[in-house]
Design a binder for these strands. Structure first.
Lengths: 346, 346
DNA sequence: CCGGTTTCTGAGAGCGCTCTCGGGGCGGGG
DNA sequence: CCCCGCCCCGAGAGCGCTCTCAGAAACCGG
């Protein structure tokens, strides 16, 4: 055991590796970082020393000089409780994790619930501990994108940001599911089934995903009937309320496109309670393809599937690319295709 | 703008703060870290300089000398896919996040899927980037606890570890829900309803939560009938299979305690399909109190509630306490009480 | 007004690493 | 045989911070 090894509280340093290998710290460093330009003899010596000592680089020291953390922050503004209750959250994280692991980067999870959290997160980002940021559930009032921009921290947003001008802001790179296209898919499917009086239950209209899904519906009904549109809130209870409303307004409806599976399950419940058969009398299509709901309604739910994990992966890839090549022009936003999963309800 | 400020790529350093305030770096550092032992005049000068420059300490540098990261790792071994699909994951993280935020610590999320991930995580932990570790979904084969122990990294486990000897290992601090007590609660409730032929559907018996829930059931039937016990897998499909099995073995059963809400929902489906009324003919109690299931079965599910978020918080608090006072004796493990939520199914 | 405390402050070392820069060794061309 | 160029390697500076240590300043009692 060498002198310098014991000095750092047991953990070997590059210095001790170099000493054991009989080379300089610089050479040891070269080997640890790929070994380019080091003779094979020395390289092997160093590698043996590394193995023997169980040397692991101290990243704090490395970060201090390279100014690279090999870590990215994932900021989730939580008040959108939906993000939490649905399995989306876990799937996103899994996608991010996989992509990050492949690039040997770490994920720092930052959950924001209130104003103070945003401040704390701002400070953290300013502290320079992450090389980039992934942002979810953006609100207009969310200060994080601005903070990141000011700090020169690359970031990628999950879901289309909704405030005015966001769309045209080239700095706002986002990844989103094709909500609008998915909605069109759903409605087209209902039409192909011969349905003509197709209603829709929307999500809360201050969220872009709701708006886009409604827009997709409207694409097929340019001169649509407002009575066939009811506003929900993505929850099953909201679906119940909206369906009840629709049923009184338009008892003749023969299909419903609900902008979430939870709302669809609520709607089905109401329909059956009202004596309508699903799908015979009223066909129902949902959105999300949440396994625990879609596979468990009676009848099983026809719905629009979105690739949540892929979304996480893509966001991460976009961000990493940007980190590795800061000079490159900002990548453009990406829309991930959605697909229809036909089961029994339509 | 001072010389040293521009040197670091725009971000002000302690040096530049000191310069602007007209004090030494040491004094500036003191102020930034609480300001004890600094005259008010100087303190204010420094504080103004900090505000003016927008100074934020570089944690890499700080970590390098203090050997404290103000970050903890959360390691989730994912193969237990349940952790991901259920809302548990998000709730745990939220609890952890809240507690960590209060202590101004960060959370590094480490998801493990395969062998390589465990290696990567081992390396990461060895890198000394986190001060402690929270471990979930522990398998016997999981090398992480051992790694942490070897590295002297304090850790706290979520859920009772199951391998032989784990229980008596004083170093293995864990936090768990009172699975056994919750199961007893459920069965007692069924008994109080006058039910006598109470069956149970267990989870996979290689998980301690399953075992503990089964043990709770057995506590009330010391000489129980093996025919009344069916092994499930925590999923709704598993519940269907197990219930079908139970119904053929013991058509006379009048109550079922399912070790998860998902299994309970499957069981209810089978029971109704078999013409049994719930709860009149067969009373059903679940476990978990997963909102999206328990509130949506028909009839609504009576179930055992567990405080997931509290579990995350508690684990975090235990870990932080340990970090702040490494000399203190290892805290003992904690069991969080569960409670019965009576709805309609029993 | 002076010596002894006590309180503050600044100089400087050092955390572990990367990276530049220059020197030494070696080969090849003149 | 000499010189030039190339390839490796090591010395050393420096990343931004904390913390010890010693000296300066302020304070007190006599």
């Amino acid at each position: 055991m060498t002198e310098s090894e014991t000095a750092t509280g047991g953990r070997p340093t590059l210095e001790s590796v170099a000493e054991l290998a009989g080379v300089s710290r610089a050479t040891a460093s070269r080997v640890v970082n790929g070994g380019a330009g080091v003779r094979a003899v020395l390289r092997e010596k160093v590698e043996r020393a590394v193995a023997e000592l169980g040397y692991v680089p101290n990243l704090a020291a490395r970060t201090l000089v390279t100014r690279r953390n090999r870590a990215i922050g994932v900021v989730v503004a939580e008040p959108e409780a939906r993000f939490f209750s649905d399995p989306f959250f876990a799937q996103h994280l899994r996608g991010i994790s996989r992509e990050l692991a492949a690039a040997d980067n770490q994920m720092v999870l930052l959950l924001a619930e209130d104003e103070r959290d945003h401040e704390r997160i701002g400070r953290y980002l300013a502290g320079g501990h992450v090389d980039g940021v992934l942002l979810f559930s953006l609100h207009r009032s969310d200060p994080t994108p601005e903070t990141a921009q000011r700090l020169g921290l690359p970031f990628v947003i999950g879901g289309r940001p909704g405030w005015p001008g966001a769309e045209s802001d080239r700095d706002l790179v986002y990844v989103d599911n094709d909500n609008r296209g998915g909605a069109r898919l759903a409605v087209q499917h209902l039409r192909s089934l011969g349905r003509t009086r197709i209603a829709t239950i929307t999500g809360p209209l201050d969220q872009t995903s709701s708006i886009d899904r409604l827009d997709g519906y409207r694409d097929l009904f340019p001169h649509g009937d407002g009575d066939l549109i009811a506003v929900g809130d993505f929850t099953a209870d909201g679906g119940i309320r909206a369906m009840t409303e629709l049923l009184t307004r338009r008892p003749d409806l023969d299909a419903v496109f609900a902008a979430s599976d939870a709302m669809a399950s609520g709607a089905i419940r109401v329909l059956r309670a009202a004596g309508r058969r699903v799908p015979e009398d009223v066909a129902v299509v949902g959105f999300d393809d949440v396994e625990s709901i879609a596979a468990w309604t009676e009848p099983r739910l026809t719905t629009v599937r979105q690739e949540i994990e892929e979304m996480g992966r893509l966001m991460t890839r976009l961000l990493l690319r940007r980190l590795n090549d800061p000079e490159a022009s900002a990548p453009s936003s990406v829309i991930i295709p959605t697909g229809l999963v036909v089961r029994e309800s339509a």
